[in-house]
Design a protein around this nucleic acid. Structure first.
Lengths: 108, 108
DNA sequence: CTTAATTACCTAGATTATCTAGGTAAAATA
DNA sequence: TATTTTACCTAGATAATCTAGGTAATTAAG
């Protein structure tokens, strides 16, 4: 069983992407990233929550207290209009850089 | 003209990849990454040299004083056997994570 | 001939993202 | 009743990268 990993600088993008499919609570965002990534990516809570606060402070996401699908008290996050724009920017930036790295790695 | 960028955590991989094609001096490594990446990636010298020292200390690369193609005094770096193994590991890890991020981004 | 630009290396300190390793509390399960 | 799971929170450590300087030699420009 290989170690799950996370690439520094991509966490915000992943969170924003998950929220684009609809509001999710913090804990659930981490789970969704894990599942969607085929168990390759693992987001530590110590990274997840601080990232959520940063992005809320920047106005990319907003939160409301509510309930998780399991009926527990949970803080539900959703994308703002600025968050949608930020997601588009970060996705494009990711694609550019991933392409560029691919170019350097070519024939490695 | 868009800002050049670098993805945190991939610098070692890029340097190792450049050195796989043959010995290059530090300054030249930065230039090669820039060119190979189609001008998308830019490595700051303040990131480049510390990364070279770290990797030399770990035994992934070695250095000898010599000359650049322009005939200037330069420190020439080359891959060690451990460096080749490290390159393979990091490339595989990059491919895994890039794939995983692609999965999360799907249909974004 | 003098000045500016380029090549090439170096580094201290700041910034910032992520992780470690704890913690609380409520609900569900054993 | 005890343990596990869900869910949130956070202080401090770690580590990579960047900022912003610096030196020195060679080449190009004025």
């Amino acid at each position: 069983m290989e170690k799950t990993e996370l690439l520094s600088g991509t966490l915000d993008l992943l969170i924003l992407r998950v929220l684009k499919s609809g509001p999710v609570h913090g804990f659930g965002i981490g789970e969704k990233i894990h599942v969607l990534s085929k168990e390759i990516l693992e987001v530590e809570e110590g990274s997840l929550y601080p990232s959520l606060y940063r992005m809320e402070a920047k106005g990319w996401i907003k939160s409301d207290w509510g309930q998780s699908e399991k009926g527990r008290r949970a803080k539900i996050y959703s994308l703002t209009k600025n968050g949608i724009r930020q997601l588009d920017d970060e996705r494009e930036s990711w694609l550019r850089v991933a392409f560029a790295i691919g170019e350097v790695l070519k024939n490695a």
